[in-house]
Computed example of a mutant assay.
Amino acid sequence: MSEFARRVSAEFLGSLLLAALVVGSGIAAQQLSPSDVGLQLLQNALATALGLFAIILIFAPVSGAHFNPVVSLVDAALGHRAWRDVAAYVPAQILGCISGAVVANLMFGLPAASISATERLTAPHLLAEVVATAGLVLVIFALVRSGRGHLAPAAVGAYIGAAYFFTSSTSFANPAITIGRMFSDTFAGIAPSAAPGYIAAQLAGGLLGFALVRLFYPSAGQGVRAAQAKAPDPAAALP
């Protein structure tokens, strides 16, 4: 398998596991705590945060572990990745998330695909998706451009886990997972009528996040150089 095919395959499988994680933990939470929505959300968020940390660790050395078209677009716009990769990553991510939702449904004995009836389209939800996606982009690329990319798996997992609660939309922040979640009429699902609005808000959030990254980290290594400039020179203390 070529290096390019390996990267695209990693994005597909990683996206599949992400969707299986989000949808599967949502189904499990719904079954374990049928009368407590708050507890369902906590279970879904905790499983997603921990699982996302592990999935990123697995695939980051291969493809960068995007699993998200917005992240791939910003990565290319910042000059970190070729647009050829993005053109292949995005379909792989979408197909992976749809496949992951199907796998999650089957693991819990549900029909392979069931179109969600959960309506989520409100103005506060759309604002929440802009905020959630912009924050995700800022977390990822602030670390990458300041030489702290090794912290991204933990930081992304922590941010997404927190965003389940501080955003009214429960932080989809990903067009591919939004499409995938249409195919499961369960706790984590989203109605097809709401998906286009969510995706538009996520793209707007990605653009905002890109602008913030360029503002605070105008060049790769910016944060590293700034820290080095402020650090005391050990040689200055020598006689």
Rank of each mutant, 00 (worst) to 15 (best):
E3P: 06
E3M: 11
A5C: 08
R6K: 14
A10N: 07
L13N: 10
L13E: 03
S15T: 12
L16S: 08
A19G: 04
A20F: 03
L21D: 02
G24M: 01
L32K: 14
L32F: 04
S35Q: 14
V37E: 05
G38Y: 00
L39N: 12
L41E: 09
N44F: 02
N44T: 14
A45C: 06
A45Q: 10
L46N: 05
A47R: 08
T48K: 00
L52S: 07
L52M: 11
L52Q: 04
F53P: 08
F53R: 12
F59V: 14
F59T: 14
F59W: 07
P61G: 03
A65Q: 01
H66I: 11
F67S: 08
V71Y: 01
S72H: 03
V74K: 05
A77K: 13
A77F: 03
L78A: 07
L78K: 10
G79E: 15
W83Y: 11
R84L: 11
P91A: 05
Q93R: 10
L95P: 13
L95W: 07
C97L: 11
S99A: 15
N105Y: 02
N105L: 05
L106W: 07
P111E: 09
S116P: 10
S116I: 11
S116R: 06
R120N: 12
A123F: 10
H125N: 15
H125W: 09
L126A: 13
L127P: 08
L127K: 08
V131P: 03
T133M: 03
T133D: 02
V137Y: 00
L138E: 06
V139W: 01
I140W: 00
F141L: 12
A142Q: 13
R145P: 08
S146R: 06
S146L: 02
A152R: 12
A152W: 01
P153K: 08
P153V: 09
A158H: 00
Y159H: 06
A162W: 01
Y164C: 13
F165T: 15
F165S: 14
T170W: 04
S171F: 07
R181G: 08
F183N: 14
F183V: 13
T186W: 02
I190P: 02
I190S: 00
S193N: 11
S193W: 12
Y198V: 14
I199H: 05
A200H: 09
A201C: 06
A201G: 10
A201Y: 04
Q202D: 01
A204S: 13
G209S: 09
F210H: 14
R214L: 15
R214V: 15
L215G: 09
F216S: 14
P218N: 04
S219P: 08
R225G: 11
A226T: 15
A227T: 11
A227W: 06
Q228D: 12
D233V: 09
P239N: 12
